[in-house]
Amino acid sequence: MPHSHDPADAIDDAMRAHTEGVRALKISLAIMLATALTQAAVVALSGSVALLADTVHNFSDTLTAVPLWIAFALSRRVATRRYPYGLSRAEDLAGLFIVLMIALSAVVAASESIQRLFDPRSVSNLGWVIAAGVVGFAGNEIVAIYRIRVGRRIGSAALVADGVHARADGFTSLAVVVGGIGVLLGFPIADAIVGLLISIMIGVLLIGTVRSVGLRLLDGIEPELVDRAEHVLAHTARVDAVERVRLRWVGHRLRGDAIVSTRATTLIDADRLAIEAEHAVKQAMPNVDEMTVRVRSART
């Protein structure tokens, strides 16, 4: 299909991105819920604090998909005079909720683990505990692959980050397996120690998530995106120099503006150049919804 620069095509791209993003959230939520419920059943049978820590974390990960889903729904609201850019920034609020849930899961896991260190309890059904850890890893990895793949396709940094988060969580599930093996080998406090290690790993993940959410809240942008837009503009016909490029995330979509200089001799030529430059950026970066290009004369 030939590429079109009609504004309707940009709307279609945004709607397709929204639909794919919501589908990814629905499917991954179902997978993570099934994984967490399976692990919870084994926790009830075994009393493993390491598995409890991992289960609580997986439940929190399941819940974090809900505000992101709501944010995707709000992004479809029509812009108004009060909200002229729409409600796509609701995705940043969802990010704050995700940060709080990760922090809460780390606190719960750590408190339970410390309690078990001072008040050890026997862990039964170790085979099931190890199996549940493997299930946790498999569920997180499936979700990670799916979210990252869809996130990259639609240009959603939040969905990609959520996928990377799920992948890291899968390795905490493997820690449960290590704890279960430690108990089998005669180290009864291995379960509680691994629970603490999981809490620390969750805290490390929290640091990365805070940085990512903070970048969006402060209108930050990945420098490589600006570099790409500058490269496209610089290679647009009749553009002599790129004076400025600005981009900002609005949810999982991009808006921006630029100033370029040219030796075009008429206002009509300058207007055509601005349109061509805007279309070139949108074609090279499909997640850009709006790009306003201002043309200045390069004549001295």
Rank of each mutant, 00 (worst) to 15 (best):
I98A: 11
G170I: 05
A161H: 05
I148F: 00
G208R: 08
A36C: 13
R23Y: 04
G203W: 03
E224L: 12
D54G: 07
A161S: 15
D257E: 15
I268F: 02
F118M: 13
A10I: 14
R81G: 10
R76P: 03
A14E: 14
H252R: 14
F59L: 11
R167A: 14
E224M: 10
V194E: 03
L233S: 09
S124M: 08
A264Y: 02
V295F: 06
G208T: 09
I181S: 01
Q283L: 08
P286D: 11
E276H: 10
V194H: 03
A270M: 14
R296F: 08
R253Q: 12
D240L: 10
I142Q: 02
M101Y: 00
R253V: 06
I259F: 08
K26C: 09
D191S: 07
A36K: 05
I154F: 07
S124E: 14
G127Y: 01
D227I: 06
A79L: 09
V194R: 04
T236K: 08
L25S: 06
E278T: 14
S173A: 15
V164E: 13
H5P: 05
D240I: 03
A190Y: 05
A90E: 01
G151N: 07
A280K: 02
F72I: 04
D269K: 07
A10M: 08
G139P: 04
V22W: 00
H165Q: 03
S212E: 14
A14H: 09
M101K: 00
Q115M: 07
M201P: 00
L63Q: 03
R238M: 11
I70S: 06
T80R: 08
L267T: 08
L185G: 01
R248E: 09
G203C: 13
A41M: 10
F137R: 01
V49T: 14
I70D: 01
V242P: 05
V250W: 04
V281T: 04
D191N: 05
R89K: 15
A161W: 02
